[in-house]
Simulated assay, not measured.
Amino acid sequence: MFDPATTALWRAALDEVCEDVSRFESGTRAHVASRILEGDTSPDGLKRMGREALHDAPTMWR
């Protein structure tokens, strides 16, 4: 279980990176989320990881 502050940080990064991705595109959002979870805990680092994941997401997910 993760602490609420870390969870909120991850969610904020995911929401910002995926602001133009439909909530119904769950595959893309899951791909980005999994990469964010691998990143560091700085807000800028999480967003960078998320943007890279979004850029690298398979085209069938977009």
Rank of each mutant, 00 (worst) to 15 (best):
G50W: 00
L9W: 00
E38S: 14
M1C: 04
H31R: 06
W10M: 07
R11W: 04
S26C: 06
D15N: 15
G39F: 01
A57Y: 06
E16K: 14
R11V: 03
A30D: 08
R48N: 05
R11P: 00
A57G: 04
R23E: 02
E38L: 15
S42A: 09
L46P: 02
D15Y: 09
V32N: 02
K47Q: 09
H31M: 09
G39P: 04
D15L: 12
P43M: 01
R11N: 07
D44N: 12
M49V: 06
L46S: 02
T6G: 03
E25M: 13
R62H: 13
R11C: 01
A30G: 05
L9K: 14
E25H: 13
D56C: 10
R51G: 01
L46Y: 04
D15W: 05
L14S: 05
W61H: 12
F24I: 07
G27P: 01
M49Q: 09
S26Q: 14
G27W: 08
E19P: 00
A13P: 03
A8I: 03
G45S: 07
G50V: 00
E19Y: 08
R35V: 05
G27H: 08
T59G: 07
G50S: 05
A57K: 11
F2G: 03
G27N: 12
G45M: 08
M49Y: 05
R51M: 12
L37S: 09
D3R: 12
M1A: 11
R23T: 06
A13E: 00
V32H: 03
M60L: 07
G50F: 00
